[in-house]
Simulated scan of single mutants.
Amino acid sequence: MEKNRKIIGLCGSLRKGSYNAMLLKVAGELIPKGIRFEIVTYDDIPVYNADNDLPETEERPASVTRFREALANADAFIIASPEYNYSIPGGLKNAIDWASRGKDSPLMHKPVAVMGATQGMWGTVRMQTAFLPVFTFLNMNPVLQPEVLIAQAQNKFDADGNLNDEKTISIIQRKIDNLISACKV
C-alpha cells in the first residue's frame, strides 16, 4: 500500500466502554506508519428514508453528507462490531444503507475487513456472515482471513481497554496486513 493511504474504521457499537471500540483502537495502533487511520462515527445519522436521499437535489441530511464525504476519502475500511440478534447492529446497518446509495457510493469496490468482540462464546460469527451480501451488492473486496472472532472479550481486555491476549493481537495484525495487501490491487 502506498504512503498517504487512508483506512477508515467503523464501530458497530455506540456505547461507552464498548469492546468493539477497544478492538478498533487496537487495530488502528497496528496499522503501519505512513498509513492514516481514522474512526468515523455515525451516531447523528437519521433512520434511512429514500424521500431524504435525493443527491440530484442535494436533499440528503447534512450528517449523512458529512459521513459519506469521510468515507469517500478511504482506501479501505475496518469494521469492528458486536452481533445483535444474530446480525449487524441496526445503527451500523442504517449508516451503511445511507452510504450505499447512488452511483457515487463511497463504499463501492473498496477492501473491507470485519472483526468483532463479544462477551459470549460465538465471537460475532453471525454478524460477520450477515455482511457478506452487503459486500456483494457493493462490489466490495472483503478480507475474509484470518477471522477475528473475539469471544469472552471481558477476559481479553484490561480495565484501560488494552487487549492483553498476544495470540489475538497476532491474528488482528495478520488481518490488517491482508487488508493492506488488498489495497495494492
Rank of each mutant, 00 (worst) to 15 (best):
G34Q: 12
R36A: 11
R36H: 15
R36V: 08
F37R: 11
E38Q: 15
E38S: 14
I39L: 02
V40Y: 06
V40S: 02
Y42G: 01
D44K: 15
D44C: 02
I45S: 01
I45T: 07
P46R: 08
N49L: 13
N49G: 11
A50Y: 14
D51L: 14
D51T: 15
N52H: 11
N52P: 01
D53E: 11
L54Y: 05
L54N: 12
L54E: 10
L54K: 11
P55C: 00
P55Y: 01
E56I: 13
E56C: 07
E58R: 09
E58D: 13
E59F: 06
E59G: 14
A62E: 12
S63I: 03
V64A: 00
V64H: 04
T65G: 01
R66I: 00
F67Y: 12
F67M: 06
F67G: 03
F67T: 09
R68F: 00
L71Y: 07
N73D: 11
A74V: 10
A74M: 10
D75G: 14
A76G: 13
A76E: 08
F77S: 09
F77C: 10
F77I: 07
I78E: 05
I78D: 07
I79K: 07
A80T: 15
S81T: 15
P82Q: 05
P82K: 01
E83A: 01
E83S: 00
Y84Q: 04
N85H: 05
Y86S: 03
S87A: 03
S87N: 04
I88T: 04
G91W: 06
L92M: 06
L92N: 03
L92C: 03
L92F: 02
L92V: 09
N94W: 06
A95I: 10
D97K: 01
W98G: 02
A99R: 08
R101G: 06
G102Q: 13
G102M: 08
K103Y: 09
S105M: 04
L107D: 04
M108W: 10
H109T: 14
H109A: 05
K110H: 13
K110C: 11
P111D: 04
P111Q: 09
P111F: 03
